[in-house]
Simulated assay, not measured.
Amino acid sequence: MVAESDETQKKLPGNRRIPTASNVSGRPQEHSVHTVVVDRDRCAGNGICEVLDPAHFEIGKNGALIILSPSVAPADLSRVHAAVEACPASALRVD
Results as ranks from 00 to 15, higher is better:
G45H: 00
V80E: 00
M1T: 12
V80D: 00
G47N: 00
P54Y: 05
I48Q: 08
R79G: 02
D53C: 14
I66D: 06
D39Q: 10
D41F: 05
V94Y: 08
V72C: 00
G45Y: 00
G63K: 06
E50C: 07
Q29D: 13
P19Y: 10
T8Y: 08
E7A: 15
S69D: 09
P28E: 02
L92Q: 02
P88M: 06
M1H: 14
E4F: 12
G14Y: 11
H56T: 05
R93Q: 08
V51Q: 15
S22H: 07
A55K: 09
A75F: 08
G26F: 06
L12R: 11
L65S: 03
G60Q: 13
N23I: 05
D39T: 04
R42G: 03
P74L: 00
G63V: 00
G63S: 01
T35C: 06
H56D: 01
H34L: 12
A82Y: 01
S71N: 12
S90N: 11
C43Y: 03
I18R: 07
N62G: 05
R16E: 10
K11Q: 10
I66E: 05
A75Y: 06
D76Q: 09
I59K: 02
P28Y: 03
L52I: 04
P19G: 13
K10F: 13
M1S: 14
